[in-house]
Structures are given as C-alpha cells and as structure tokens.
Amino acid sequence: MGAMSSDLANHGPLLLPGTSSVGVLVLHGFTSTTASVAQWARAIHDAVDDAGAHPGVRVPLLPGHGTQWQDLAEQPWQAWRDAVDEEYWALRAQHDHVVVCGLSMGGALALHTAARREVSGVLLVNPALALVNRMARFSHLAAAAVPSLEGIGSDIKQPTGLESTYDRTPLAAVAQLNVLMHRTVRMLPAVTAPAVVFRSDEDHVVSGASAALLAARSGSEVLVVPLHESYHVATLDHDAPLIEAQSREAVQRLSRGGRFLPGEAS
C-alpha cells in the first residue's frame, strides 16, 4: 500500500468522547495507522463507571504516518513524543486519571509518557523496547545509502488479517525509533503506574526481551498476559477479544474507584 491519505476516515485520528473520571490515550505502531488499534480503543470506550459514564478516548495519528513513507523519513522521534504529550494534556484537562495504551512503537511512547507524566495505568501490546532484527540498530549508518527497506507490517497469525501500513520502511525513521526505544528503556525506573503487558508467544518484529526489560526495570507492578494465538499485531489477531476484554475491565475498575490491575482488593 502506497499513499493512504484518501482513506483518512479509517486511518485518521479517532476521538471517542466520554465524561467518566478516566481519559484514555491509545497509540498505534511504527509505519501503521489508527486502524490497527481502533477496535481496541472502541472496546475500552465501552468501560463505564457506576453512573454509566464512558471514558474519553483519544487515538492520534502520529506524525509522518497515514500518508507516504517518505513523510515518516523526515520525522525526528521528538515529533512523536510531542504529539503524544499534546493528547495527554487534552485528556488531563477533562479527566482525573489518564491511562496510556500502545501497540509496538505506541507501547514505547506510552511508557515514555508514563515515565514523565502522571498516569494511572498502562496497557501495552507487544511494546517495542528491542527489535528482533539485530541489523536495525545500524540503521543510522545505512539510511543514506539505502533509504528504505521492505515494509514490516501485517505480522498477523490470522490468515485474513491485514494491517494498514506503509509498504516500505524508511531507515531514517528506524534510526529515530531506536533512539526512542533506548531512551525509554533508560527511563523505565520512573514508570510507577501499574502496567498490563499483552505479549505474543511468537512475535517477528519486537523482541521478547521487551516485556522482560519492563518487568525487570520499571518501578511499577507489571502483569504479563501471554497471547498464544497471535503474532506482533495482536490487536488485529486471534487474541484481540482477550486484549479488549481485559483492557476494558481495567479501565472500568479504575473509573469505579478500584485498582487498575485485576485480583486485588479495591
């Protein structure tokens, strides 16, 4: 898939208004669009507090995404961080609590936000703190000679699953993703909000070390939920209903004055 701007209705920013005490930020992955996490976001929006109010959910289209891969090549990692910050403050203006959620690179951005801002919970699907492809760490050296590689999207086990992503991956942007991951790992001790990590047994994009790094280094309570039937883009795979149900329940508990993680006294 080349340009996607013609289909912004499905791939652009998604705003699901709500008036409960919880605001939720949902972040998509590298080279992808909001379509990869929209179903997850809508499921979370179904969480209601005791008065029947829904959370406010924001799903931004990150800078350089949803158009053409050349646009992504021009983005510094700070552009993604700043865009996420803007969404965070918009939610903080309307809600007492903010929960940050992310798939892949969105997971790294969610953790980066949780380390720097006040958040009440973190929901992660195969967060990117280390990539499977070891060559990726040299992308800054190769970017000048090889501007792009084959796309990395649609790592989905379900045969009919398809992710809307760029068909090429700009190496300059991979270099920026590396910086984001490296900085986020260093900041993990500052993450104190409880976190749920949905982790696929088999992931061809993000290294299994990512979930282990989070559990070992973060200052928070981390619940790891294994996904046995999904690859990297688990929000569009067989385990999507499990991710949706557990995420909705966590936000619902929080909005009703309980603890974010399951199985604890509120």
Rank of each mutant, 00 (worst) to 15 (best):
S6H: 09
L8V: 09
H11L: 09
G12T: 06
G23Y: 02
L25H: 05
T34P: 11
S36A: 15
V37W: 02
W40R: 06
R42L: 10
I44T: 04
V48F: 03
D49L: 14
H54L: 01
H54G: 01
R58L: 14
P63N: 06
H65T: 04
T67F: 01
W69S: 10
L72V: 08
A73M: 08
W80V: 00
R81Q: 11
D82K: 07
A83I: 04
A83H: 11
V84Q: 09
D85N: 14
E87H: 10
A90M: 13
Q94L: 06
D96T: 15
H97R: 15
H97V: 01
V99M: 11
V99G: 04
C101M: 12
G102Y: 00
S104V: 06
G106L: 00
A110E: 03
L111E: 12
A114E: 08
E118H: 11
V119N: 03
V119Q: 06
G121H: 03
A128Y: 00
A130D: 14
L131I: 12
V132I: 14
S139T: 15
L141W: 15
A145E: 07
A145Q: 07
L149H: 02
L149A: 05
I156T: 00
P159S: 11
P159G: 05
T160C: 08
G161D: 00
L162Q: 11
E163C: 07
R168F: 09
P170E: 09
L171F: 05
N178Q: 09
V179L: 15
R183F: 07
T184Y: 01
M187G: 02
F198A: 10
H204Q: 05
S207N: 13
G208Q: 10
A209T: 15
A212D: 14
L213W: 13
A215H: 05
A216I: 01
L223Y: 04
V224L: 12
V224H: 07
L227F: 03
H232A: 05
D237S: 09
A240V: 08
A240N: 11
P241F: 10
Q246L: 15
A250T: 05
A250D: 01
A250L: 03
G258A: 14
E264F: 07
S266R: 13
